[in-house]
Amino acid sequence: MRWQKLWQAEWAAPLIALVSLSTALSLYDPNFRKLENLSNIGFQTAVIVTLAAGQTLVIIAGGIDLSVGSVLALVGVVTALLLAAEKPISLAVVSGLLVGAGCGFINGFLVTKGRIPPFIATLGMMGVARGLALVLSKAQNVFIPQEPRFEPFLELGTGRLLGIPIPFLIAAIVATLTELLLSFTRFGRYVYAVGGNREAARLSGIPVHSVLMLVFILCGLTTAIGGIVETARLSVGQPTGGQLYELHAIAAAVIGGASLAGGRGSVLGTVLGALLMAVIRNGSDLLNIPYEWQQVILGALVVLAVLFDQWRRRVA
């Protein structure tokens, strides 16, 4: 019975795939298991994990957020502009977080009060955020001054703590807090209930609109954290940055067992999904597989994950 429950867990399939693929790559190419390569995987995965944690909340609640890539770019531009103007690091970071949370609030307002489908509302925000990023930056990259006083900010994207990349530690903290929120709070139970059956949740006395509003705000907040880390890693705010990040975040959640119909998923599964995608890209580079075929592999993986989830439900 215990093994049956383990197999039915959303994160079981991505965990098995991740362990199997990592073992095969380690045996085939010893360079894969080198600390430097594993550290690179950590850097590459950190921002997607941070974005995907908030995206998972939205997906479990029965929605979707297509604007995270553009919001990430807007947050990066705002943060870099303030630093380039020699404003305090704390002001730049807080402003970036507020921009992300504000975009999430607008998304939530449009979905709840405006009764606009999440796909359309966030698609509109995708265009608005990207346009604002281009306007504020005058369609140019905004470089952060390479001065000693800005080193603490740049460390957020390039530094290490006890040998572990700081971006990966930030992503781990965000993912852990989000998982705890989902698993051990009343709000987490409400998120699953709203995603499972919105009308039943409403009739049960759950404040559906408040729950939806909050998940979009949290998604905007995690996106802002990812945007700040990305800006610190590159030392530049890119108005064209974050392209296709929304698809990567959604793919990580789906591969991790989240259902696009809502009511099912976990942040643990999402993290495993993001790591699996990163290992596939890294292994493909080691095996000299062209980038075009890497995209084919990742796309096929998303489709297989959905098919597997449907098969598992029928069996259950």
Rank of each mutant, 00 (worst) to 15 (best):
R149N: 12
F150L: 15
F150E: 07
E151K: 10
E151F: 09
E151N: 06
P152Y: 00
F153R: 08
L154C: 09
L154A: 15
L154P: 09
L154E: 12
E155A: 13
E155H: 12
L156G: 03
G157P: 01
G157D: 00
G159L: 03
L161P: 01
L161A: 11
L161E: 03
L162W: 14
L162D: 00
L162E: 01
I164W: 07
P165Y: 08
P165D: 06
I166G: 08
P167T: 05
L169I: 15
L169D: 12
L169T: 07
L169F: 09
I170E: 07
A171S: 14
A171K: 05
I173C: 06
I173D: 04
I173R: 01
I173V: 15
V174N: 12
L177Y: 03
L177H: 02
T178F: 00
E179Y: 00
L181D: 01
L181K: 04
L181C: 07
L181E: 01
L182S: 04
S183P: 01
F184Q: 13
F184S: 13
T185K: 08
T185N: 06
R186Y: 08
F187P: 12
R189Y: 06
Y190E: 15
V191C: 08
Y192F: 15
Y192M: 10
V194S: 11
G195R: 08
A200G: 15
A201S: 15
A201W: 11
A201F: 10
R202T: 05
R202S: 13
L203V: 10
S204E: 10
S204D: 13
V208D: 13
S210P: 02
S210D: 11
V211I: 15
V211W: 12
L212N: 04
M213L: 15
M213T: 12
L214T: 15
L214Y: 08
V215E: 04
V215H: 02
F216I: 06
F216Y: 15
L218F: 10
L218I: 14
C219T: 14
T222G: 00
T223F: 07
T223V: 07
I228C: 04
I228Q: 03
V229S: 09
E230Y: 14
T231Y: 02
T231V: 06
T231L: 05
A232H: 09
L234N: 09
L234W: 07
S235L: 08
V236E: 05
G237A: 03
P239F: 11
P239I: 04
T240W: 11
G241E: 09
G242E: 00
G242M: 00
G242W: 00
Q243W: 10
E246C: 01
E246N: 02
L247T: 09
L247E: 04
H248M: 04
A251T: 02
A251E: 03
A253D: 14
V254K: 01
V254P: 01
G256Y: 11
G256E: 12
G257T: 04
A258L: 06
A258R: 00
A258H: 02
A258Y: 06
A258P: 02
A261V: 14
A261R: 12
A261Q: 14
G262T: 13
G263W: 13
G263C: 11
R264D: 08
G265Q: 03
G265W: 01
S266N: 13
V267F: 04
V267I: 14
G269N: 06
V271C: 05
L272E: 05
G273I: 03
G273L: 01
L275D: 06
M277Q: 15
A278C: 11
N282I: 11
